[in-house]
Design a binder for these strands. Structure first.
Lengths: 226, 226
DNA sequence: TTTTAGATTAACATTTCGTTAAAACAGAGG
DNA sequence: CCTCTGTTTTAACGAAATGTTAATCTAAAA
């Protein structure tokens, strides 16, 4: 396994130098970008594990950039963290809404930064979502095209139904409680837990029984055999 | 199934009020603690999904508390975030080393806090540190899928039966009295101690004798040999 | 033998789930 | 801007599963 790649972007050379020096010392491979366009350039050829983005860059706004990065590989998640000097609430909220994973304040304190990055990357490594098709029993679940076929027949699912199915079928046998399903599949987590039931029922109605089991008092699981 | 539980701990009432008000509005269930000891008290009966801890509390130091929480088996998988007014680098590093997942600066900005908490919980759920299966004698106890197999044959247990078995089988040879079992396995501790007997009996009926021994006048234990 | 604690059973209470329908919401097209 | 359409969420209720209690029976210890 090669070193983790971190893409750092800032319009101030001093900051880039400081980051590069410290992160390289900590064993990471560094990609430097002086502005948003360079980030997009670099991303094409390299595949950074983590982005450290200044929020205010001359050409592309950091938040914008975050949206673009998130759009490039919708199912593939890398870690995006923002660096910012001025902590303004609306920026922080916007950053998280744009899909940021963390928000780090300047001035940069090397040791703290490295500790923080280590936990971020660790989490990222433990969580490698595959965007590949999923074939299980007679189902073929294709996240790219958002289609599901059952024994060759295409079934039409809504986005939510699809996401729920894909998530559960990605972990066959594993029981999820409703909270877990809500926070993993739903955008907005503050809906009634019973909502999950209804969508499970829809899936069962669409696919037929025998794919999703109820574990009473716990939650639901995708079966391991049928 | 209840909403996500967040345990908030701070020695300032104002902060607690602010947190509670905003987090409840966002759909979380809140547990309040005014100091470290109360945190440890609350943890016994409830199982918070996330901890928001003030780093400087009168009795137990936040970092210490974090270590203690990480040592408690059931909570090794919950999210721990610190709240702190003064950002001092050495504290931040220590916090991450103690197993913290995030480090949030006061003053608290409600919207930002909620966005941040949502991503933390989401990440936690996606990381799903799968609990390890327990293999003992001819039993295989799999908490992930809530299944038990005996010599390859799947046995179907209710949630409570499963939890009780898993708990006891995790500590073979250790005798538990009924109170201990109630507070470890049951959510709601206010049931008769005799209730335990009934469920022990159910387990014996399902698994056969020879797994759980009675220690008269004390309680029950999972055997070390059979 | 008496006493005490545990085992067993069945009735009862509670919790949880499935199902349905209606309300709320969001997006597309006019 | 409004209407139409499909989707998601809420709400209500019955059915089923599960947990608790309490009363009785059994076995072991004193």
């Amino acid at each position: 396994m090669s070193a983790q790649k971190i893409l750092i972007a800032d319009d101030e050379k001093d900051i880039l130098d400081l980051l590069e020096y410290n992160l390289e010392k900590a064993g990471y491979e560094i990609l430097r970008a002086n502005n948003g366009s360079e980030v997009l350039e670099l991303v094409k050829d390299h595949n950074p594990d983590l982005f450290l983005l200044d929020i205010g860059m001359p050409d592309i706004d950091g938040i914008q950039l975050c949206y673009q990065l998130r759009d490039m590989a919708p199912h593939q998640s890398s870690v995006i963290a923002f660096l910012t000097a001025k902590l303004e609430e609306y920026v922080e909220v916007a950053a998280f809404e744009a899909g940021a994973d963390d928000f780090i304040l300047k001035p940069i304190k090397p040791r703290a930064l490295i500790a923080r990055i280590a936990t971020l990357i660790k989490r990222f490594n433990e969580n490698l979502p595959s965007q590949s098709d999923l074939e299980i029993f007679d189902l073929k679940i294709s996240p790219d095209s958002y289609t599901v076929t059952q024994a060759g027949e295409e079934i039409s699912l809504s986005k939510l139904e699809f996401d729920l199915l894909y998530f559960m079928a990605s972990h066959p046998g594993k029981v999820f409680n409703r909270s877990q399903l809500l926070s993993s599949v739903w955008d907005n987590t503050i809906v009634l837990q019973r909502t999950v039931d209804v969508h499970i029922r829809k899936l069962r109605k669409l696919l037929g029984n025998g794919y999703i089991d109820t574990v009473k008092g716990v939650g639901y699981k995708f079966v391991t055999a049928r």
